[in-house]
Simulated assay, not measured.
Amino acid sequence: MVAVFSEDHVSLRASMKGLFAQHSSESEVRRLMATDEGYDPVLWRQLAAGQELQGLVVPEEFGGSGYTWVELGVVLEEMGRALFCGPYFSTVVLAATCLVESADESAQKEYLPRVASGEAIGSVAFVEASGRWDEAGVTMEAKKVAAGYELTGQKFYVLDGHVADFFVVAARTSGEISLFIVDRESAGVSAHLEETLDQTRKLATVTFHDAPARLLGAENSGWSILGRVLKLAGIALAAEQVGGAQASLDMAVDYAKTRIQFGQPIGAFQAIKHMLADVMLEVESARSAMQVGLAAASGHEGLDLDEISPLVQAYCSDVFELASHQNIQVHGGMGFTWEMAPHLYFKRAKSMALFLGNSDSHREQVAKALGV
């Protein structure tokens, strides 16, 4: 296993665990998931001002802290453990990373300080009606006009698209993919909040009709940027999934210790013991895989992000699904009732297993990267 965590990371984890225990309790998660916005704007600003979380991996010259993906992974794992409701993944992992990777200094100066300060929420509008998370799925055409570019079409499964202040949009120019920034307040832009399985994480359909767009980076360089961002985002998502899997395991163990059946805790029965031991093994293995992924994302020598990211995504996704499912099994018939917490993690696991592509597509990427 690649060693990536230091004593400073242990301290960071403890701080984040306490922060989200206070601000992302089950009752708060349930309150926020019932709202259209899906997050607390006051807390969002506090996270930027007090904890500087939005600027964690934003370069210092653009108002951020300039940390690595290892530190970001620690934060995301604790967010996943607490089912944090907020536009952090969409803004920091997706939109801000596109800006950083674009090397477009003008756009970076305009948008990254606003992200780091908590002033702006961003998202990436990428997936179209085909539901594909790859280069071939992008068919939207950018129209060249006197003032620059205009976009027309729809993008689906846009994370936090209903509250985003700006979008990084993938569209075709001369047959190749380019990236564009579109401000939410621009003419011809509308977002519709969709009903989804996981109410703790909001998805929207965003419609563009002759919407003015600003080119991000060089024309026709979009996939070289977005392809890398999606690999990095896969590692980030894996960190969240490990946190959710650990929370599911902890919940199942606690219940097995206190639920009395036939005069003893159900955790004393061999079937339950074996089930939880198997889940613990998978969660620890997923954590090891995640650490390798974070090292690759941070530029650790000898680690190929293109090979490692889809492998980590596939495995951590499967483990979160397993852990959340077995948590419900341990709780029995009441495990999926609305009043109990296990179903919240199960729904997050199921929805995130499809976000950025499913496990089969990730394994196919691994095979291609290995030349199989």
Results as ranks from 00 to 15, higher is better:
Ser6Ala: 07
Glu7Asn: 13
Arg13Met: 07
Arg13Ala: 13
Ser15Tyr: 10
Ser15Gln: 15
Leu19Asn: 07
Phe20Asn: 03
Ala21Pro: 08
Glu26Phe: 05
Ser27Ile: 01
Arg31Gly: 01
Arg31Gln: 12
Leu32Lys: 00
Ala34Met: 06
Thr35Leu: 09
Thr35His: 14
Thr35Gln: 02
Asp36Ile: 09
Gly38Pro: 04
Tyr39Lys: 08
Pro41Asp: 09
Arg45His: 10
Gln46Pro: 00
Ala48Arg: 08
Ala49Leu: 06
Gln51Trp: 14
Glu52Leu: 02
Gln54Leu: 13
Leu56Trp: 12
Val57Gln: 00
Val58Arg: 01
Glu60Ser: 11
Glu60Arg: 15
Val70Met: 05
Glu71Leu: 12
Leu72His: 07
Val74Pro: 13
Leu76Arg: 11
Met79His: 01
Arg81Gly: 08
Ala82Gln: 09
Tyr88Pro: 02
Phe89Met: 05
Thr91His: 06
Cys98Phe: 01
Cys98Ala: 04
Leu99His: 09
Ala103Val: 14
Glu105Asn: 10
Ser106Leu: 15
Gln108Leu: 12
Pro113Lys: 09
Arg114Phe: 08
Ala116Ser: 15
Val124Trp: 06
Phe126Trp: 07
Phe126Asn: 02
Phe126Lys: 04
Trp133Phe: 09
Glu135Trp: 14
Gly137Ala: 04
Thr139Lys: 13
Ala142Gly: 13
Gly148Cys: 03
Gly148Tyr: 04
Glu150Arg: 12
Val158Cys: 03
Val158Tyr: 01
Asp160Ser: 10
Gly161Phe: 03
Phe167Thr: 02
Val168Gln: 03
Ala170Leu: 15
Ala170Arg: 10
Thr173Pro: 01
Gly175Trp: 05
Ile177Lys: 06
Ser178Val: 07
Ile181Val: 14
Glu185Val: 15
Val189Thr: 01
Val189Ala: 00
Leu193Glu: 07
Gln199Val: 04
Arg201Pro: 01
Ala204Gly: 08
Ala204Pro: 00
Val206Thr: 01
Arg214Phe: 06
Leu216Met: 11
Leu216His: 09
Glu219Lys: 05
Ser221Pro: 00
Lys231Ile: 00
Ile235Arg: 05
Leu237Thr: 10
Ala247Gln: 10
Leu249Gln: 04
Asp254His: 11
Ile260Gln: 09
Ile260Tyr: 06
Gln261Leu: 15
Phe262Cys: 11
Gly263Cys: 10
Gly263Ile: 15
Gln270Gly: 01
Ala277Thr: 13
Val279Ile: 13
Leu281Pro: 01
Leu281Ser: 15
Val292Gly: 09
Ala295Trp: 04
Ala297Gly: 01
Gly299Met: 08
Gly299Cys: 03
His300Cys: 03
Glu301Asp: 11
Gly302Arg: 10
Pro310Met: 07
Gln313Arg: 14
Ala314Cys: 11
Tyr315Arg: 05
Ser317Val: 02
Ala323Lys: 14
His325Glu: 05
Gln326Lys: 06
Asn327Cys: 15
Ile328Leu: 13
Gly332Trp: 02
Met334Ser: 11
Thr337Asn: 09
Thr337Ile: 07
Thr337Ser: 08
Tyr345Asp: 04
Lys347Phe: 04
Lys347Thr: 15
Ser351Cys: 10
Met352Thr: 15
Phe355Arg: 04
Leu356Ser: 06
His362Arg: 07
Arg363Ile: 00
Glu364Ser: 10
Val366Lys: 00
